[in-house]
Each structure stands twice: as structure tokens, then as C-alpha cells.
Simulated scan of single mutants.
Amino acid sequence: MGSVEVENKNVPEEEEVNEDEESPIEQVRLTVPTTDDPSQSVWTFRMWVLGLVSCVMLSFLNQFFSYRSSPLVITQITVQVATLPLGRLMAAVLPTSKWSLMGRKFSLNPGPFNMKEHVLITIFANAGAAFGNGSAYAVGIVNIIKVFYGRKISFFASWLLIITTQVG
């Protein structure tokens, strides 16, 4: 008897997955897609507002609480948890109408709040949290100049000192 070959065109072929893109951690493999959805907006009004506010607030609050004898540290995880409902609220409340500015069209609400926006907001928050290492080292220098030496230092000089030590 001869063999009969049956061709089934309805069954999709398995997609080839690059093993370099696969995470060795099972939970990550199951929850994080290895493909990108280019239709999701990234640089949105929501991302900039929530990202900048979270960065500034986290930086301020951690610096404020660092003066306590047992400092309270607020991490970027707190912001990550708090910004998800805020982003979804903004997606529900902001207007979807489009405006034109300098020949480019934009909208305050380009669609549903997505994972890409949430990741960028978390990156902003991480920058404000000083990566868990506390405030900038030069803030201590400014405090020592004012408290222990009783000298005045201008805001501009303090800012310049802190920025130059952080950048270098």
C-alpha cells in the first residue's frame, strides 16, 4: 500500500523564536511578549506629566525624609503601583481631539494607557529615587557648609556644586 500525504493548510506553522530574546526566567517568559506593537504610543502627554511629576516628587520626598534619624525611603515601585490607575484615569478623562502645532498633529489622549508608557514613567521615577542610594552626595556638602561652618551659600552655587558632582 502506498502512503497518502495530507496537507493541512489551516494549521499555522510554528513561529521561530530567537532563543537570545527568550528570558531564562519562566515568569518573565510567560508575561512579557518578545514582539513589539508599534501601534502603541510612547511619547504621550500622560507619560511626560506622570513621569516628570513622579521624578520630582520622589526626589523631593526622599530628600525631605533623609533628614530623619530613621529615614523613610520611597522607592520607584511605589510610583509604579500608583501610576497605573492614574494613567488609566487620564486615558479615560483627557480629551481625544487632535491639535496642530508647528505643522505636527498631536492629541493629549492618543489611546489606552499602555505598558510602554508605564515603563517610561517607572524609569523617570527611578531617576528621582536616586537608584536607592539616597540623595546626591553634594547635598551633604551644602548642609555641612550651612550648619557646621555657619556660612551662607547661594542657591546658584549650591545647585552648580550638586549638578557638577552628579554629572562628572
Results as ranks from 00 to 15, higher is better:
1 M>C: 09
2 G>F: 08
4 V>G: 06
5 E>W: 11
5 E>C: 05
5 E>H: 09
9 K>N: 12
10 N>K: 14
11 V>K: 04
14 E>R: 14
14 E>L: 15
16 E>R: 13
16 E>T: 12
17 V>I: 10
18 N>C: 07
18 N>S: 11
20 D>W: 09
21 E>D: 14
24 P>F: 01
25 I>A: 04
25 I>P: 07
27 Q>C: 08
27 Q>H: 13
29 R>A: 08
30 L>H: 13
30 L>W: 09
31 T>H: 13
31 T>K: 12
31 T>C: 08
31 T>E: 13
33 P>T: 06
36 D>F: 14
36 D>K: 11
36 D>H: 13
38 P>S: 06
39 S>F: 12
42 V>A: 03
43 W>S: 04
44 T>S: 07
45 F>M: 05
46 R>S: 03
48 W>Y: 14
52 L>Q: 10
52 L>D: 02
54 S>C: 03
56 V>A: 03
58 L>A: 02
63 Q>A: 09
66 S>E: 00
72 L>F: 12
73 V>Y: 11
76 Q>E: 13
80 Q>F: 15
83 T>A: 07
84 L>T: 04
84 L>H: 04
86 L>T: 01
86 L>A: 02
87 G>E: 05
87 G>F: 07
87 G>P: 11
88 R>W: 07
88 R>L: 11
89 L>W: 15
92 A>C: 10
92 A>Y: 14
94 L>C: 00
95 P>S: 02
97 S>T: 08
98 K>M: 13
98 K>T: 15
98 K>H: 14
100 S>F: 09
102 M>H: 07
106 F>Y: 05
110 P>C: 01
110 P>V: 01
114 N>F: 10
115 M>S: 09
121 I>D: 01
122 T>R: 06
124 F>H: 01
124 F>N: 01
127 A>Q: 14
128 G>I: 01
128 G>S: 02
129 A>M: 11
132 G>E: 04
135 S>V: 02
138 A>R: 03
138 A>D: 01
141 I>K: 08
142 V>D: 00
143 N>Q: 10
143 N>I: 05
143 N>R: 12
146 K>Y: 10
147 V>D: 11
147 V>N: 07
147 V>L: 12
149 Y>R: 08
149 Y>T: 06
150 G>C: 06
150 G>H: 06
151 R>D: 11
153 I>R: 12
155 F>K: 11
155 F>C: 06
156 F>K: 10
159 W>Y: 15
162 I>D: 00
162 I>W: 05
163 I>H: 05
165 T>G: 04
166 Q>P: 07
